[in-house]
Write a protein that binds this DNA or RNA. Structure first.
Lengths: 226, 226
DNA sequence: ACCTGAACACCGTTCAAGT
DNA sequence: ACCTGAACACCGTTCAAGT
């Protein structure tokens, strides 16, 4: 029976940690973070849930592994430029990785201890600052100031933009204008067309780079001052 | 039977939305976010879980309510100062509220749509920028650049600091030095005492204000340039 | 010795049965 | 008409039973 053989092969398939993480990433990419539960990963692999615990000590280690996959996709630092473009390019690469895996930021936020892969990334980033002439202290503050933006986070409030937003009609629009006039003023400026339809929304990439450059420029000035 | 009477009184106690949110906040303050489950809130109130659904449509609305409680604790904007100290003071007030309720940041990160209370807070903050001479566009960028820091977020990676950290011994310390030399260098500078013990750690308040001022100063320069 | 099915202790929420 | 107990569909993980 070929079915039997197929089952045998599947059963004997190594089921390494890589395979577990790989299917977890695939499931999360496809169905969001809650699609990457222990039970669903096991089901996808044609395996009983407990079988995963041979390759991963538990949910925590699985989440750490998922982060490592994403961090592993960040480009290596460009060695032939100044600190500023090196940091900038690397962070933009991190952002691209995060956009490829929208579930990753939520996991990172939930993590409590950095993995060796993340530590290596941070260490490398610190090294770039130091090589750029930043003192130990200023580098320290710089890393804190960059915060999770180092990992490519947009770190905005309510950055859903997922569910095709429920078509703001004129009634809601005028209500907005009355209740929150300052928000209204900005929304109106962002949407180029007339006020009856909500515009194309914000340019996330522009806003990310704006904030990034604001920080980098500020840090550069602090470096030059000392 | 006084017991019966007590039960009757408790049963007849209004069980308003305020009471539900109040006990939820108390439970979360005391036992973290997972202590504020529907079932545990109901148990604390001596009520069947489903009874909560009379005052709260579901878990989502409960979480929104919890955020509103925290945002409600942020001081009103000081009206008699320049935009910079007004923004600064308000954000530091938000940070204080968040430190009082450490569970709140995780909930805010999980939220997808802002509540009216949060919108009002944002609207007020935008108004402060505008009154400070910022153009509509620059104010827009400023709000994005501030991001969740507006709510008092430290938004750092791995800001646990909760579990009394497991006493870094000399062995780990030298391993750190070898694997992550740049991180080691910074840790060494932060901890004033000798290298055998990890020092007092970072001054979170200082780092928060450092990053905040870096952004505010940069924004001020951009405003003056136009 | 190894693997795994059933069970445990949760969770938010539905729904029909009881008053 | 109102309230609520049991049940549903999940979750991560323990543990003992089966091979």
């Amino acid at each position: 029976m070929s079915t039997k053989i197929a089952e045998e092969i599947q059963a004997r398939a190594p089921l390494s940690k890589e395979r577990v993480l790989g299917t977890a990433v695939a499931l999360a990419d496809q169905g969001g973070i809650e699609a990457a539960s222990m039970r669903k990963i096991a089901q996808e692999l044609g395996v009983v849930p407990m079988a995963l615990y041979k390759h991963v000590s538990g949910k925590e280690e699985l989440l750490d592994g998922l982060i490592d996959v994403v961090v592993g996709e960040i480009d290596a630092p460009a060695g032939d430029t100044d600190w500023k473009t090196a940091v900038r390019e690397r962070i933009l690469s991190a952002r691209r990785a995060l956009l490829r895996h929208p579930w990753a930021s939520k996991i990172m936020e939930s993590r409590t201890t950095p993995t060796p892969t993340v530590l290596a990334y941070m260490d490398s980033m610190i090294g770039t600052f130091r090589a750029g002439g930043f003192s130990v202290d200023l580098t320290h503050h710089a890393m804190h100031a960059m915060g999770s933006r180092l990992m490519g986070f947009t770190q905005e409030l309510f950055n859903d933009r997922s569910e095709a937003e429920p078509a703001v009609d004129t009634e809601m629009w005028t209500a907005l204008a009355g209740l929150y006039p300052s928000i209204f003023e900005i929304c109106q400026a962002v949407s180029h067309d007339d006020a009856s339809v909500v515009g194309p929304g914000c340019d996330d990439q522009f806003e990310f780079e704006f904030a990034l450059d604001l920080l980098l420029d500020g840090l550069e000035k602090l470096r030059d001052r000392s």
